[in-house]
Nucleic acid binder design. Structure first.
Lengths: 208, 208
DNA sequence: CCATGCAGTTAACAACTGTTCTCTGGAATT
DNA sequence: AATTCCAGAGAACAGTTGTTAACTGCATGG
């Protein structure tokens, strides 16, 4: 229904997206709390006051960016965490998937890593909520595994959040090696893979 | 030799510390990249130009804050990671130690968590260096354990960095529950303890 | 076809920023 | 006692910021 837009609404969404894109670009080398609204509009080529037609403040824009960066990522969880292949293959696949995502959306990943503990409360909150959802989703997938027999709900969530945090650490590690040599990138792959493997081993022997 | 200071140098260090303290306070609700030098001097009650007698820029001040927040923490590593007691006691002790540190120095911890991926490159670099040192130190302690027999150097460092990251995650978790109920704090203790225990179990079975 | 709605513009505001230069008072040195 | 040094003050600068108000032009719905 709503995806058929008039010329008017289409143009509005276009400017809105331009604002989001420009902001994301500017945020590569500063934090959201220092991003000025004029800075953003200047980058887009639009009057400062036009900003208010789309966002109440830069904090508001930040929340929208969180949605853009993480909102569409949820379907990915199912296909990554679960799967019929064996443990090591699953880990390798997950690491490759993270590496690929960082390659395609480096600015989004940087934004999330930066603002997760950043200086803008509503944005921190939005990220926290999204990550909590990821935790729940990973937990749901883990619960399907036969290895999870005998696990308490709390422990499953504990493990799921451990995985989520590890994903973020890995992503931010890939971010740092974006302009590094292939050898260094391969080293990051190795370390990330082994860290996940160690956690996986811990999981296998948890109930001993 | 240099720790006996004249009235002059003493007063200078006092102002310098006042600037650092004021900045740390202001950084509780914003990021370093949005911290203005005038803002800091105003909070201390000195002229804006006095700032330049101590720091080249707010980024420079940030690097000094990293030193203040992490520099004195290295001796703590040895007494925490190592020890003759058993595994679970060591983990419990580490978690309590982190909780205590967050209670006493919340602003320092927040600053590190915030600026680790923040918008100021020199500060990120300074934090990265300090954390790398922590990694090396933890590795050195781990190497002393009999459990580390047969481990490669790379894997030891991999595990050490996993622990370091986990410490930071735990610290930032405690930060979020600073004003929460004792029950919630206890829940964080439980989760952090179990995550560390799971990693520890993974370590025990790494060489299988 | 005309009236309404609304995305984006223009102009202006008070407040703020980092940085420069000049000056001052008192501690440090001789 | 005379001189040098230097942490901090003061004033001024050009440039920036967020927000307001009143506007314009054009797509929209009746």
């Amino acid at each position: 229904m709503s995806h058929i837009l008039g010329v008017r609404q289409a143009q509005k969404q276009k400017t809105r997206q331009a604002l989001l894109d420009a902001a994301l670009g500017l945020l590569e080398e500063q934090s959201l709390s220092s991003l000025g609204l004029r800075e953003v509009t200047r980058a887009v080529g639009v009057a400062p006051t036009a900003f208010y037609r789309h966002f109440r403040s830069t904090a508001d824009l930040g929340v929208a960016l969180v949605e853009e960066a993480l909102g569409s990522l949820h379907p990915m969880i199912r296909t990554t965490v679960s799967g019929a292949d064996d443990h090591d293959q699953r880990i390798t696949r997950a690491v490759q998937l993270i590496a690929g995502h960082v390659d395609v959306y480096p600015a989004h990943v940087r934004f999330i890593a930066r603002e997760r503990h950043g200086g803008v409360q509503p944005v921190r909150e939005a990220i926290r909520e999204q990550l909590a959802r990821f935790g729940q989703e990973v937990k749901a997938e883990l619960a399907k595994d036969p290895e999870s027999a005998g696990w308490s709900e709390d422990d499953l969530l504990m493990l799921a959040n451990l995985y989520v945090d590890q994903m973020l650490i890995t992503a931010s590690l890939f971010l740092e090696t974006l302009e590094a040599s292939p050898e260094e990138r391969e080293r990051v792959v190795q370390v990330a893979t082994r860290q996940l493997r160690l956690i996986s081993i811990g999981r296998d022997h948890w109930l001993d």
